[in-house]
Design a protein around this nucleic acid. Structure first.
Lengths: 161, 161
DNA sequence: GCATAATAGCTGCCAAAGCAGTAATTGCCG
DNA sequence: CGGCAATTACTGCTTTGGCAGCTATTATGC
């Protein structure tokens, strides 16, 4: 069934999507972390606040799935943010297993002040790319994520939020 | 100078290249690690052997740069592989600071036996993609890596191997 | 030629993610 | 309704990568 995108005889790691994606991720981190830390936050802390800002993930479970972060590790990140008064935990009445996360005004203000820095840096590093190239890159990456997700978790083919 | 690929008002993390690349990397790991571990190796161990097989990186320094792995951590991975008799360290005569890494016959046999599994899995997860899509994805990722690299390390604009 | 800087690899320590196991709650199915 | 499975969040332990410092060797500048 699988097409012959790669062949054993000619395969080199540097032409592998896996390698390229790993490297891009690592480089992106090196670029973004200083931006975030200059505001006094770690990258994961930023990611959590960003998820809440976008209103897509409101509980730890969803954030874990979205950003593929360990559940235990996430608990501790949430602890840190809660201690600094940037978000609040509330048990849901409907399902008391679930925790609902909500940015405090301070938290919202914080993340809103960081976003422009991130956007600016993103635009800066993408300045060599045309609009069309970025669009195509996003499309292909989204498609890649979708198919990879299906391979990791074949049961749920549909995406989760 | 920077184009307006992203705007503050409309920015959502899920449309960020950073997010997409991070997620793809994580998913790819989840898919590939079982493949490698089924042969009794960790993913990093595979990466090191793969680098030596491709003949692109022959010393720790280059592997670190290529795969963006920590120098100290890499030393320990090399230790593991050396103990299992899969590679050998030899100090270079030219520059005795450098260590030359070389796969043993056993090591070469091992990595050659793993490559087909990796290639098969790659082709499997990319089966929804057309040849053209994969080509374009690779091109864009390589371009991305190059520009990101320039931002991380502005001194050396030229790529290294 | 000598002192200083730079490079390559290694070691120890620390922080953070990964993993497994736990408790509380809810869903499911007889 | 009752018992078992599943879900959600959390807590300790382990593993691993990141970081700083160290040694040995080479390059550089005076």
């Amino acid at each position: 069934m699988s097409k012959q995108h790669y062949k054993v005889a000619t395969y080199k790691a540097q032409m592998s999507v896996g390698y390229l994606v790993k490297r891009a991720h690592s480089l992106m981190l090196d670029i973004m972390e200083p931006v975030i830390e200059q505001r006094g936050f770690s990258f994961v802390q930023y990611v959590v606040m960003s998820a809440l800002r976008d209103g897509i993930a409101m509980n730890p479970k969803t954030i874990c799935a979205q950003f593929r972060h360990d559940s235990g590790a996430l608990t501790r990140v949430i602890d840190q943010l809660a201690e600094r008064g940037l978000l609040e935990r509330t048990r849901r009445d409907r399902d008391r297993r679930k925790v609902e996360l909500q940015l405090t005004p301070a938290g919202r203000e914080t993340i809103e002040s960081i976003i422009p820095l991130v956007v600016a840096k993103l635009n800066e590093v993408l300045s060599d790319f045309s609009k069309e190239e970025v669009q195509e890159l996003l499309r292909l990456l989204i498609k890649l994520n979708t198919t990879l997700q299906a391979h990791v978790d074949p049961s749920r083919v549909a995406v989760e939020a």
